[in-house]
């Protein structure tokens, strides 16, 4: 999604001169076009993420809408206090962009992964986390973030194309519509691709993506699907605590959405203390296509 992101930022920042872009010394072979087109509104703050976010708050206070870009763990964890105190307390338009959310940086190692990012950021006051699932979601998320003019986090990952290109993108998307749904699967981010692969021989799983956390409400097609199937699977490349599953479950119970079975498929961290690529971690966590298919199969058997 990096290049898609870069093209979208170039476009959106050309339309709005109040947009500033700060990078924490990253963007090789991805942000050169942004650097060129934004001129003095493009700033390299060096390998100094805390200062980058503190400065962004100062610039936002003076009227700018400020994107801060780095690898996901660096923009989330290193400067969490700046995000909370300087940005969120004052409801300032500072937009954190984390590339490689989840296990995206694979063999680069655990320091480069962000599997607790939503848990860290989504409880902060005024903060909204945006998690595009497909390439086409990226520009939609950027435009929503700029329009909302509030603290935001954009978690970037792999940019697959939509299975149904005609889809009207919103914060909740019904990406696979089955004729006789027995299961409602809700995915966070590009990991949805594994679910799509898992159900390609089936026609009984409704697949949704949620692009915005905290989840506002459960309504429309999502609510109807859950009411019909009663079987809910949440799939995310994020730890269980504070992730989409936990937040969604609370929302479902609070809103009285009826269901009888809830399964959370999530990142398990580093249980083997062995390292590999993104797919390797997905397999270990049971969030790869094969593992998802097994879970679906088991639910269908008991349906």
């Amino acid at each position: 999604m990096r290049k898609i992101f870069s093209r979208a930022i170039e476009k959106v920042s050309n339309e709005n001169e109040k947009i500033v872009f700060i990078t924490g010394d990253l963007g090789y072979n991805a942000l050169e076009n942004v650097q060129e087109s934004m001129k003095n509104r493009f700033i390299n703050a060096g390998v100094a993420e805390q200062n980058m976010v503190g400065m962004a708050a100062g610039m936002a206070y003076k009227g700018y809408k400020v994107f801060c870009y780095s690898i996901a763990p660096f923009i989330v964890y290193r400067c969490l206090e700046q995000t909370r105190n300087d940005v969120c307390f004052h409801d300032l338009p500072v937009f954190l962009v984390g590339n490689g959310g989840g296990y995206g940086y694979g063999i680069m190692g655990a320091t480069h992964h962000a599997i607790e990012d939503i848990a860290c950021l989504s409880p902060l006051p005024n903060m909204t986390c945006w998690i595009p699932a497909f390439a086409d979601d990226v520009e939609y998320c950027i435009r929503e973030i700029v329009k909302n003019n509030k603290p935001a986090y954009l978690r970037l990952g792999l940019g697959n194309p939509y299975p149904d290109k005609a889809l009207q993108i919103s914060t909740v998307n019904h990406v696979i519509v089955s004729k006789q749904p027995k299961i409602t699967l809700i995915a966070l981010g590009p990991i949805v691709q594994n679910a799509i692969e898992a159900v390609k021989e089936l026609d009984c799983v409704d697949i949704f993506t949620i692009l915005k956390v905290p989840v506002a409400e459960i309504s429309g097609e999502l609510e109807q699907s859950i009411s019909k199937t009663g079987n809910v699977i949440v799939l995310e490349e994020h730890v269980q605590r504070g992730g989409l599953g936990e937040q969604l479950l609370m929302k479902m119970v609070e809103s009285g959405v009826r269901f009888h079975n809830f399964k959370s498929l999530h990142a398990k961290g580093y249980p083997t203390q062995l390292y590999g690529n993104q797919k390797y971690y997905q397999e270990i966590s049971g969030i790869d296509a094969k593992s998802i298919a097994l879970v679906i199969d088991e639910i269908i058997q008991n349906f």
């Binding site: 500033v20 003095n40 509104r41 700033i43 805390q50 200062n51 976010v53 503190g54 400065m55 962004a56 708050a57 100062g58 610039m59 936002a60 206070y61 003076k62 009227g63 700018y64 206090e81 700046q82 105190n85 300087d86 307390f89 004052h90």
Partner: peptide, 25 residues
């Protein structure tokens, strides 16, 4: 009182951001 402060080490970053914004403008 434009910012909530009390955790040390935040003020110079914020002020630097303000100065940078002023410079762009």
């Amino acid at each position: 009182i434009p910012f909530a402060l009390g955790s040390l080490g935040h003020g110079l970053s914020i002020a630097t951001g303000i100065a940078q914004a002023n410079k762009i403008q």
